[in-house]
């Protein structure tokens, strides 16, 4: 066997990745299409497609179908993909950075912290104010977390316990802001703490997208450093990684990204925990693959969860975070019960 072949043969996940990408992209498109078609008014798939084609100048579609598919559902689906992709990415990044499979931006308190800022921002400036407030508060919470992590870096379960306590406390503060503010301006408490895509508009999607493209590029760039950090923080430093710098920059990126998602969709729990956990056995532990796969799968998961949130108790719409928690909660418990929570 030549050396080149030998090197290739030693990655047990390469064949799985080969079929994962096309399947995941197909499922993403299918989930998006289903979400555009299903809802209070069902629109047939051909009609959905004709709306989409009409939008790029091919043929014509009914005004009513266009208003529903393009005006209401499309921004919601895109926002769902964006929020899910971001949470999947941030979850995978945090798990790598903290060397802990239990890390999740919402469980660690970053989401609830961002929600305080987002709720305050919503008082002053609507969805853009909420995004700006979420980003600031998200970054601040990330750094509060960093201080906790530094002190507790030995015991992974303690980091999570600290995060859960931090999150519970910060969630309570969200309540103070919401109940203290004008209810006609600030979304209700369940929006912030359970998450919802019901407020999605082209405007909120556009603003979130601009922010998230920047943070996503930054976080994806950390992939190689995260691989090295898996060897241990000292080992990464011995191999030339400036771990302090990487930790700082990555936490700013995670805090900002989570802040944006909280500003537009509230705290959607467990996506960041569940998705990387599911992706790791398929695409392998290398972050170059894991981060992108987690984005794709996170997007699919939130779009489908939102579809369920709109449909299970129709015509009543439930917060999307209830669906993600129903699926993600048991996985979290199972991970907790495993010895040490090691990322094998």
């Amino acid at each position: 066997m030549t050396d080149e072949l030998w090197f290739k043969s030693a990655d047990p996940h390469s064949s799985r990745r080969a079929w994962f990408w096309p399947i995941a992209i197909t499922v993403a498109l299918g989930a998006a299409l289903a979400s555009l078609a299903l809802g209070a008014v069902n629109i047939s798939t051909p009609d959905v497609i004709s709306v989409l084609l009409a939008r790029i100048g091919i043929g014509e579609a009914s005004t009513q179908a266009d208003a529903v598919v393009w005006g209401i559902r499309m921004p919601r689906v895109l926002l769902g993909l964006l929020v899910g992709a971001t949470l999947g990415l941030v979850g995978a990044v945090l798990q790598g950075l903290l060397r802990n499979d239990l890390a999740d931006p919402q469980l660690l308190g970053i989401g609830p912290g961002a929600a305080i800022g987002a709720a305050i921002g919503a008082v002053g400036g609507g969805v853009r104010g909420a995004i700006a407030g979420g980003v600031v508060a998200g970054v601040v919470t990330s750094f509060a977390l960093r201080r906790l992590v530094r002190r507790n870096s030995i015991d992974p379960t303690r980091i999570i316990l600290s995060g859960v306590a931090l999150g519970a406390m910060l969630s309570a503060y969200v309540g103070f802001v919401v109940f203290g503010a004008d209810r006609s301006v600030v979304p209700p408490i369940e929006f912030w703490l359970l998450g919802s895509l019901s407020g999605a508009t082209w405007r909120s999607f556009g603003t979130a997208a601009v922010f998230l493209v920047v943070t996503t590029i930054g976080l994806l760039a950390a992939a190689r450093n995260l691989d090295l950090i898996a060897l241990g923080e000292s080992e990464a430093r011995h191999l030339g990684v400036d771990t302090d710098y990487v930790t700082t920059v990555t936490l700013i990126g995670c805090g900002a990204a989570v802040g944006v998602t909280v500003g537009v969709a509230g705290v959607v729990a467990f996506v960041g925990l569940l998705i990387p956990f599911l992706m790791r056995p398929i695409v392998g532990p290398k972050h170059r693959h894991l981060l992108v796969a987690s984005m794709l799968a996170g997007g699919i998961f939130v779009v489908l969860a939102d579809l369920l949130a709109r449909s299970v108790l129709s015509p009543v719409e439930i917060p999307v975070g209830l669906i993600t928690a129903v699926v993600g909660g048991p996985v979290f418990l199972w991970l907790l019960s495993r010895k040490d929570g090691h990322n094998v």
Partner: peptide
């Protein structure tokens, strides 16, 4: 050092 590294031995050496 860490014993719970999820990478293959080759990937570790590559680093």
């Amino acid at each position: 050092g860490a014993s719970d590294i999820p990478f293959t031995a080759l990937a570790v050496v590559e680093m």
